[in-house]
Amino acid sequence: MSRRSPDLVGLAAGIAAVALGGLLALDRDGAITLGAGWIAVAACAAAGVVLVTSGLMDRRD
């Protein structure tokens, strides 16, 4: 039976989603206060991680 290789883009997106979700949960709960600037930075970082991974995967292919 053939086995698929892991999808690194999906993996990066999942990790980014977990991290961003955790930060937002802490912020909404009041445990930390991120503010608009840091939320924007976190969201951009999450998007950036996925795009960079995707770009690197495309290059490897």
Binding site: P6, G14, I15, A17, G21, L23
Partner: peptide
Amino acid sequence: AVGLSIAGVLLIALA
């Protein structure tokens, strides 16, 4: 946010 994290875990598992 918790839903987003759960979706992320699901995405990791599928990936």
